[in-house]
Simulated scan of single mutants.
Amino acid sequence: MTRRLHVFVIDDSVPDLLLAEEVFATFNDKVTVTTYQSGQAALNAMWLSDAVYPDIVLLDINMPKMNGFEVLKAMKTDARLKSIPVVMLTTSLAAQDVTQAYSLFANSYVVKSVDFSQFLRQIESLVEFWTRSRLLNWPTPLSMESTSSIRLKD
């Protein structure tokens, strides 16, 4: 049996977190969800010495104190966290937000649907894709030392 997909959802909106929990509950045989109401709380959890890393982070952009771009930048500049896939899950359609997310190495950018059934389909697609695409060695990320010994033959 395949290990369940572990997803962190980071969003300051309690209704959005409750909606995410409700939608992910339909996949409870495949997914474990941990929610955080702030980027700092999620980062603190991932920075613990005995942290269990998620397979994927779903990250809102518009949050007080530390916005999603700041969380993304902190993750991608940290050697322990940089290989964790991050999907920006937001209501923003702004081109500059999409550009900034990808320039900070987001793995995907998804605009949340306001329609519940469409949002359910979005999450279903994310679960299917990331269940197939996740790193098999997770939750232990590959270190730079272990990958530096890999050599390509000419």
Rank of each mutant, 00 (worst) to 15 (best):
M1V: 13
T2L: 15
R3C: 14
L5N: 04
V9E: 12
D12L: 04
S13P: 06
V14D: 14
V14W: 12
L19V: 09
L19P: 05
E22D: 15
E22M: 12
T26G: 12
F27R: 08
K30Y: 12
T35I: 08
T35S: 10
A41N: 12
A45R: 08
M46P: 00
S49L: 12
A51P: 00
Y53M: 13
P54G: 03
I56P: 03
L58N: 03
L59M: 04
I61E: 00
M63L: 05
K65Q: 13
K65A: 11
M66A: 06
M66N: 03
N67C: 01
V71M: 01
L72H: 02
M75K: 03
A79K: 14
L81Y: 01
I84E: 04
V87W: 04
V87Y: 05
T90K: 00
A95K: 15
A95I: 14
Y102I: 01
A106Y: 00
N107S: 04
V110I: 07
K112R: 07
V114K: 15
D115Q: 12
F116Q: 10
Q118F: 13
L120A: 14
R121Y: 11
Q122C: 05
Q122R: 02
I123C: 08
E124Q: 11
E128F: 13
W130L: 05
T131F: 06
S133R: 12
S133I: 08
S133W: 10
R134D: 04
L135S: 15
L136Y: 11
P139E: 03
L142W: 13
S143G: 09
S143D: 07
S143Q: 08
M144R: 15
S148G: 11
S148C: 11
L152I: 13
L152N: 12
K153H: 15
D154Q: 15
D154Y: 14
